[in-house]
Nucleic acid binder design. Structure first.
Lengths: 356, 356
DNA sequence: ACTGTTATCGTAAACGTTTACGGAAGGCAT
DNA sequence: ATGCCTTCCGTAAACGTTTACGATAACAGT
């Protein structure tokens, strides 16, 4: 069922059929009607390869994610809502969205190379940007439209949207200081990911603003998984005196942290204050419920999509080109985990912990 | 940088270049060497659109996931390892894997229609199969190669791999009965998803085998999120006498359940036995750690890929056609949550729960 | 010298589109 | 009647590949 068949069937030239389908102006209203009707009736759908070959465009946008996403993503629940938002915009413009999975055994840059060289997509959304991300240089160099979810330290003018890690860390510190805390630890992945750097930066800045000296010993590096949180808790317990508060970069870490504290008979929310990041569906079901930060992920996706559209030549009319450089705000969601007064003593007699 | 440029640059015909690149036999070893070298040096990558147009094949496989995945997937961590496995197989055959995201506001069947009509992919992996899944009929009808992760009740001969929900439920029941439990509740999504049906089936079967009457009041329907678990716990607490054990279909539910039980002063693992499904990175960090079932997700992905390959015409030589219909086994991982003796009394004086 | 075989390569068609270009037909004013 | 504009449509080229087919040359065998 090609366009040729359709044309033969209608006894019209193939060019007219194409024009009718694509909404070109110079085609009679009645003929267009006939064409559209027949196309629907015969189930004709234009072949994407032919179209791409001719126009040099694929009407497809790729959202690239590594399978080792861990830091922000609470196990994957981060991306789905973002996808939703992106797709809601793209659908209106007849763009398809596919997720590009780069396996752990392949270099992200070479993967990207393959994707763009093959003319798979018209544009890209990349995420989990490293502090120095070769993909950005690559895309800039080849002039491929893209937008980055997460800024990097790379020079160059490109559109990006990033979460306000700095602000989150600062807000958390300010809140804890307001509660009277002075020894505030922070658990963050010692990573080349940019967010680790930013997170620490906000932490330091807020400490300084509160007149508290920065103590490198309170920075507890760990991966973003549950084990990481577990290790952070162990490091916490080893300190004397124990810090009275801890800020985490990732909710999975909170679960590991809770576990280790419970094993030691320390109750988060009573013996130590915990603020986590990012809110997930679990946050309010942990015991204690976790004070954390909410992100409107769907809106983030929408904004990402719009930012990309404004870099696509084909949409220059509708979305005037503008360099998006946006720091995405987040909202604190109070929980039970930071309701604690630092002077009340840290080494409570523990209540019995089931199973430990 | 098309194949034409490459040919001109080498002063060879364009046909020879193509043959050299594709490893055809009738090309001189030395010329092939020259072509390959020049291609690499000039960064030539064949244009996928042109190739697809000519061969009618895209070298791309789509893995379709709805964005509302909830039941099996602990927030997304289910798919990534599966993707890894699938991709590890596909890469060896120069197939690309893309994830197809069907938004919640679009009908999965119509989405699928668009994808295949456009000749986007050569084959498909679909997941989250409903008990009656129109996608399966659609794909069978059009003779599109695919494999389903999850069987449905649909008639027809198609390859599928499914988790052993029935076996899991039965194993859980047997284990609990072995510990002396008689009143065993089950929390499962009252869904049109096939897994809900299968799960309940295994539960009933194992009960019957143990000579325990099936009590419909012990089937507690709820969604697969934390709220669902929370509701299940509420329903549990409302029963007199309270069941001594509960089986859950999803780990997110376990977190909600724990929360509700803690609020009521009931300790899972001491006052009530809990068995969950599926193991995630969190399972051993909950308190009590969750008895659950482990799935080798990467291997599952590998098997899925091989099943698909054996249905692709282009690989009929290497992967002889065979109808895969596989029930994927799972392994019980003991935790602390089901270490309880049913006779020891259910309404312990609760220890203080922080934050409640 | 003729035929047959083999190795290697060039030629050209084909895949399904889109689109620049031109042509035909009609209407209107001069 | 001529010229001009508008509306509509057909023609054909082009996008980048792959591949069936034929051509050439070299070589061996008779």
């Amino acid at each position: 069922m090609s366009i040729r068949d359709l044309a033969r069937h209608l006894d019209i030239s193939i060019g007219t059929v194409s024009r009718a389908l694509n909404g070109k102006a110079d085609v009679n209203a009645e003929t267009r009607e006939r064409v559209l009707e027949a196309a629907k009736r015969l189930g004709y759908v234009p072949n994407q390869s032919g179209r791409s070959l001719r126009q040099g465009t694929t009407n497809t946008i790729g959202f690239m994610i590594e399978s080792t996403i861990e830091t922000v993503d609470g196990g994957g629940s981060f991306f789905m809502p973002v996808f939703e938002g992106v797709q809601s915009v793209f659908r209106r413009h007849h763009l398809d969205l596919v997720a590009l999975l780069c396996g752990t055994d392949e270099d992200p840059a070479s993967y990207l190379n393959r994707v763009v060289a093959r003319r798979f997509v018209d544009g890209l959304i990349i995420s989990a940007t490293a502090r120095n991300d070769p993909r950005i240089d690559f895309l800039l160099e080849r002039n491929i439209p893209f937008v980055a979810l997460g800024r990097s330290a790379t020079k160059g003018d490109y559109p990006w949207i990033d979460l306000d890690f700095e602000g989150v860390a600062a807000t958390a510190v300010e809140r804890l200081v307001g509660f009277g805390h002075r020894r505030i630890a922070i658990g963050t992945p010692a990573s080349d990911l940019n967010l680790g750097y930013l997170f620490l930066d906000g932490y330091k800045r807020a400490l300084a603003a509160s007149g508290i000296d920065f103590d490198p010993g309170l920075v507890l590096p760990a991966n973003g998984h549950e084990e990481g949180g577990y290790q952070v808790a162990s490091a916490l317990l080893a300190q004397k005196p124990m810090p009275t508060a801890i800020i985490l970069v990732n909710e999975n870490m909170a679960i590991g942290l809770y576990r280790r504290l419970y094993e030691a008979g320390i109750h988060p929310g009573r013996d130590i204050a915990v603020i986590g990041f990012r809110e997930s569906t679990q946050s309010r079901f942990l015991s204690p419920t976790l004070t954390c930060f909410r992100i409107s992920l769907r809106d983030l996706g929408i904004k990402l999509a719009e930012a990309l559209l404004s870099t696509l030549p084909a949409f220059a009319g509708q979305y005037p080109p503008e360099r998006v450089a946006l720091i995405w705000p987040m909202e604190l969601v109070p929980g039970e985990s930071d309701r604690t007064v630092p002077g009340a003593g840290t080494a409570h007699a523990s209540t019995s912990i089931p199973g430990s």
